[in-house]
Design a protein around this nucleic acid. Structure first.
Lengths: 106, 106
DNA sequence: ATAACACATTGACTTTTTTCGATTTGATGG
DNA sequence: CCATCAAATCGAAAAAAGTCAATGTGTTAT
């Protein structure tokens, strides 16, 4: 299987878990520190840290360290990238209807 | 965790696996029957069937049965829905910057 | 009717992901 | 220097997802 698909899959894994979707929802009305997210999301501290790392690695979330705290926020660029990727993956090519793509069976 | 997040996660799981991304890519230039996909994707028949079911259940792919064959195609409506959902999940609210959302730490 | 075909379903197994408690790292304050 | 706090990392256990071979189901051809 091609590498590009493995990488693309990685981006969408950001949105594949309820806890991460919950965290994203909390970030929609602004930057939050990890401790605030931890209060609202029903998982342990190490688990939240794990999920935030996946979100950050996917590019959808930014992390900013300040003193002992880490502030997270939604990345507009990362979100745009995910949206672009989704569009790219699901675009039906213009000549799709004219092709004889039925293959083995006709 | 709220039900809505579980369901949203389900839609994005369609894009979380390399084999499914490969299948989607093959469908971009038109409808294909399962046997054609099977030739190109490096998994067994039962595994492909499993993945196609996930794609169909997510709404991103249509299935059409004709005789002994099953034809799959990308669903424009399903793709649009996924794109809409992604936008909804990653939208930063207008007043996000003005909020005092830092919570415990200031 | 029967055989062959296309695909779905089942059940067992493997791999990956999620989760937690414990520990580590790094910053702050007394 | 030491205690405390926030968050990351580690290691192990549990849960979920992917995989395959075998079998079942429905269709077509002989």
């Amino acid at each position: 299987m091609s590498d590009i698909h493995i990488n693309n899959a990685k981006v969408f894994k950001a949105f594949c878990d309820e806890t991460r979707l919950m965290a994203l929802e909390l970030l929609q009305n602004g930057e939050k520190c990890a401790c605030v997210l931890l209060e609202k999301v029903n998982v342990g501290q190490s688990t939240l840290s794990h999920h935030m790392k996946i979100l950050v690695d996917s590019g959808v979330v930014n992390a900013r360290k300040e003193g002992k705290w880490t502030y997270y926020s939604i990345s507009a660029a990362g979100s745009e990238n995910a949206a672009r990727l989704l569009r790219q993956i699901t675009t039906i090519e213009a000549d799709a209807e004219n092709n004889d793509n039925l293959g083995c069976c006709e």
